[in-house]
């Protein structure tokens, strides 16, 4: 049971002690890949992709807006999965991964909102519309804040892990309900008639730039989460012998 078909002993790597050096070896790779992908993506986005017919150069904001929005939602789901694993199997590392992902997810959500507002102004004529996606993204930011606030309020880290896991699970069940209700609310109140369907018809180079930057953001988020989880391991296990040797 301990060894599966891949030949890797997963249980071994689920222990903070073995994961700590592994993460340390992986971080430079992910950080390097993040830098390379982001630079290639920016090059494609700024020097290869043509001017968009209707929005002019303002559309170039979506090269970071869309990847940040993807990551913000993706990280919340991954965070909830790690939290659930930690709750179900009582594995400390899973819970640490969940709390390592939360701040990065919140930052991605903030970037998505900020760039969305700056894209909306020239495109829609207003910084903020109560559009279903923008509003849901803002609510997602509040969900991240709730997770971080609950974690900060509980001193005992074991209790914080498990309480945050319950919160993340309740949140992840709610996210689709929130999204569809906000969407419905948006179609009823014809306040914002603009829709994201008016987004530019993407040329292939535009799509390539966005895809490569999305990869770069992905690598960055992994590197940041691994870096943070190493700090969390140090903080929690500072009295263990192996930590003092590793530090």
């Amino acid at each position: 049971m301990a060894v599966d078909v891949t030949g890797i002993n997963w249980y071994k790597y689920s222990a903070p002690r073995t994961f700590y050096p592994l993460a340390g070896r992986l971080i430079p790779w992910f950080a390097g890949l993040a830098l390379v992908f982001c630079l290639i993506g920016l090059y494609i986005g700024f020097f290869l992709a043509p001017t968009e017919a209707r929005q002019g150069e303002a559309y170039r904001i979506i090269f970071i807006h869309v990847p940040a929005a993807w990551m913000s939602m993706f990280i919340y789901v991954v965070m909830a999965i790690w939290a659930a694993l930690g709750l179900a199997f009582n594995t400390r590392l899973s819970s640490m991964m969940a709390s390592a992902l939360a701040p990065t997810g919140a930052i991605m959500t903030f970037i998505a909102l900020w760039t969305g507002a700056l894209w909306g102004r020239p495109t829609w004529g207003t910084y903020w519309v109560w559009d279903a996606r923008l509003t849901s993204e803002l609510i997602l930011l509040f969900l991240y804040f709730g997770f971080l606030a609950l974690e900060a309020a509980i001193e005992d880290s074991r209790r914080a892990d498990r309480a945050c896991a319950v919160l993340a699970l309740v949140g992840v069940v709610n996210v689709p309900i929130i999204y569809f209700s906000v969407k419905w609310w948006n179609t009823l109140h014809q306040g914002a008639t603009v829709s994201l369907e008016s987004a530019p018809r993407m040329a292939t180079t535009m799509f390539a730039g966005m895809g490569v930057l999305a990869l770069g953001f992905w690598m960055y988020c992994i590197a940041a989460a691994l870096h943070r989880v190493r700090s969390i391991i140090l903080e929690r296990e500072r009295r263990a012998d192996w930590v003092r040797e590793a530090a």
Binding site: G56, E57, A58, R60, I61, I64, A68, I111, W119, R121
Partner: peptide
Amino acid sequence: AMGGYAGFVWGSYGVT
């Protein structure tokens, strides 16, 4: 100059 949208484009990339 970004075709007149410098504030929006560089505002986004800068804050990111």
